[in-house]
Structures are given as structure tokens and as C-alpha cells.
Nucleic acid binder design. Structure first.
Lengths: 121, 121
DNA sequence: CTGTATCCACATTGATACTG
DNA sequence: CAGTATCAATGTGGATACAG
């Protein structure tokens, strides 16, 4: 009971919701890719070589739903779809950049700590 | 091959590594809890009512390994263990706070986008 | 009190094949 | 080209019981 309530509360917490999204395997990659400018679907698929079509679409849909990316179909016979960051999405990308900057500045410390934790004793 | 290589590269990327951690279900909660000061194990367990002992220990170990939290056993017969943020961990908590602040400022937008995405058409 | 090990259920994800 | 559906494998997380 208490547990249920707690989990519900956590799920509703803004910070946690956003952090959760950023943790999604492909979100940060897509955000980073789209930060450089609009990209077509196939283009994304080629550049994010590790993502299956399914995951790409699925992730993109989620981001679109949250108003973070916009989907534009330059529809002709050969379907053309383009994804771009919305202003909201750009804002999130900026916030994310802060964490990434921290990460790049401190990986060395983390790796050192890890080595010492694993190796010694 | 290409896929493997890509995934390996992603796994090695500092930004992604850290983002991944923050996305771990309990990391952000623990960081937030510990940011207020040191906490004993049982205390954490009580306050994070949704986490099982297993996940708590497991997550804490990971954070300790990365040098983000420090574990101090005020060992007597009745085991007493205290966790606290290291300076490194505090730094990460700060970076995280930026994202959380953004989140709190923009959940409304996200929810609105979501409602419009779900409801309309 | 704190931490570990085992077992199991569930969610996530990728391969594949197929539709506009 | 873009997106979807289905299925199977995998990993993650929780309950429980146990050890230091």
C-alpha cells in the first residue's frame, strides 16, 4: 500500500519523469543528433547505427508526444519524414548538456574510483 | 559488427554513462536524499519506501564504486552503516539539479503537449 | 541491523516479416 | 521510404529466506 503510493508519487514527480526519459537508451542520442539540425528518418537510422527501426520510431513517438520533437512529413510518393527539436526539446537538450559537461569533466575521477574500488584490498 | 562497435562506443561515452546512471530507478532519489546529509541504511530504506533492500544495496554499491557516495560502518555489534555523498557525488547532484529545475519549470508544457497529442485529431 | 542469495514475474528490446 | 505487428530472448527488479 505504502509502497504503491510511494511509487505513484515518484512516477508523478517532474524531476523523476524527465530523468527517466533521459535515461532511456536512445533519447539522449536522438536529442544530441537533432540538436545539430533536422534529420530525416532514414538519416537518423543510419547515424544511430545501434538502434533498430522499431526503437527509433518508438522513442521518437514518445518525444513527439511530450512536445520535445516535431515530426513533419514532406509527403510525396516516396515518403519523406523529417524530425526536428521543438523549442521545448532544445531547452531540455541544453539542460542535458550541463550533465554531459559534468560527465566529461569527471569521468576520469569516476574511472579512478572504480579502479581503486575493484582493484585494491 | 557495426552495430556492436556502435553500442560499445556509446557505452564508453561519458555523457551516456552518467545519463544512464541517473536514469536508474533509484539513483536520483538516493542522491536527493543524501544531498540533505548522511543517512543510515535503515533510514534510507524507510524514506525510500518503494525500494527493496536488494535494490537499495545494489544501487548504493554502484554509486560507491563510482566514488559518488561513501560508506562508513560505525561498526559495533548492532551494525551501523552510514552513507554520505562524496564531493564528486555532490557535484553530480548539482548537475542533476539543473535538469530537475528545468523539469519542474516545464512539466506543464509537457503535459499540455501530451494532452493535445492524445486527445485531438 | 545490514547485506546476500535464490527464484520468479514482468517489462524491454531486437529480429523478422509485413502494410501504406 | 516510413512505420507497424508479432514473437522470442534477455535483463531488471521484487519477494523471500538466510547469513554476518
Amino acid at each position: 500500500m505504502t509502497r504503491e503510493a510511494y511509487l505513484t508519487a515518484v512516477a508523478a514527480c517532474p524531476g523523476h519523469r524527465v530523468l527517466d526519459r533521459l535515461g532511456d537508451k536512445w533519447v539522449s542520442l536522438i536529442l544530441k543528433e537533432l540538436a545539430d539540425g533536422p534529420r530525416r528518418s532514414g538519416e537518423l537510422h543510419r547515424r544511430l547505427a545501434g538502434a533498430s527501426r522499431k526503437m527509433l520510431t518508438q522513442t521518437l513517438r514518445g518525444l513527439e508526444r511530450d512536445g520535445l520533437v516535431a515530426r513533419a512529413t514532406t509527403g510525396g510518393a516516396p515518403s519523406r519524414v523529417e524530425y526536428r527539436l521543438t523549442p521545448l526539446g532544445a531547452g531540455l537538450a541544453d539542460a542535458m548538456a550541463v550533465v554531459v559537461a559534468w560527465a566529461e569533466a569527471h569521468v576520469a575521477d569516476i574511472d579512478e574510483a572504480r579502479a581503486s574500488f575493484d582493484g585494491n584490498c
